[in-house]
């Protein structure tokens, strides 16, 4: 069946991501949801540091860049001062789950009424593919040459399950490895923004992305690895549903 699909106006012409980077898909999903909700003009994006902050240059709406990991702190201030706007942070795993874990934990604990989109590709992408807290056991990176050893570095952090103990408004984990998962992830993002619009509290959607450059795979192999390996450790689904 023929459909109409046109690039959202919130997304600029050229992104700076590598070939096959999942950020491009996720940026577009966020823009599509905000335009469908009719809130493209009053949404405020807060990024921090890492590949995810290249969304600032692509994004055609209001945005600011916070200090490394501190996007939830900046978003807290913006949302409290401008409760009528949609405020959301867009952060990678090297940012949110390592240097920024205190900010995200306490934003969730306070149940701040903004949304976080958490892009998880399992490495520090921008700095050259070092081990992140979310790197899988056995995964080779530039700082774990023989694969991540849990005896030495512990187990990968599951942010969604960790935050679920604090009972925020909405928590889900999606992926972009197939058309079905991309469409489901878009629904999760819509739920997260609707939770914010209804002032239910904090909402976060984690999305598993491929990083072909730092995984040293072709884009197609990287996308296949998300489905076969990454999703085995990070199960998809809604962990805290709205109204629970």
């Amino acid at each position: 069946m023929a459909v109409t699909r046109v690039k959202p106006k919130l997304i600029g012409e050229n992104n700076q991501y590598c070939s096959g980077c999942g950020h491009g898909i996720l940026n577009r999903l966020v823009a599509e949801v905000l335009e469908e909700l009719g809130r493209a003009d009053d949404a405020i994006l807060v990024t921090a540091v890492g590949c995810a902050c290249m969304m600032n240059e692509l994004w055609q709406g209001d945005n600011m860049q916070a200090a490394h990991g501190r996007a939830p702190a900046s978003a807290t201030a913006i949302k409290r001062l401008r409760p009528e706007n949609i405020v959301f942070t867009y952060q990678g795993d090297g940012d949110l789950s390592s240097i920024g874990i205190a900010e995200i934990l306490h934003a969730t604990a306070r149940n701040e009424k903004f949304t976080t989109i958490f892009a998880n590709n399992g490495v520090f992408g921008m700095t050259g593919g070092q081990m992140a807290p979310t790197t899988l056991v056995g995964q080779k990176t530039t700082t774990t040459h023989f694969g991540r050893d849990p005896q030495f570095t512990g187990m990968p952090v599951k942010i969604v399950e960790l935050l679920a103990t604090l009972k925020p408004a909405y928590l889900a984990r999606g992926s972009v490895d197939s058309i079905k998962n991309i469409n489901t992830t878009k629904k999760y993002i819509r739920n997260a923004f609707e939770a914010q619009i209804d002032s239910e509290g904090f909402s976060l959607v984690e999305v598993l992305l491929p990083c072909p450059t730092n995984w040293h795979l072709t884009p197609e192999q990287a996308l296949e690895r998300v489905g076969s390996t990454v999703e085995a450790y990070y199960p998809l689904g809604e962990v805290v549903k709205r109204g629970e």
């Binding site: 699909r5 690039k7 997304i11 096959g20 980077c21 898909i25 058309i179 991309i182």
Partner: peptide, 13 residues
């Protein structure tokens, strides 16, 4: 193709 493309290469209108 539009749904999966990271770079908004395709437009269907």
């Amino acid at each position: 193709c539009y749904t999966v493309c990271p770079d908004c290469v395709f437009e269907i209108a």
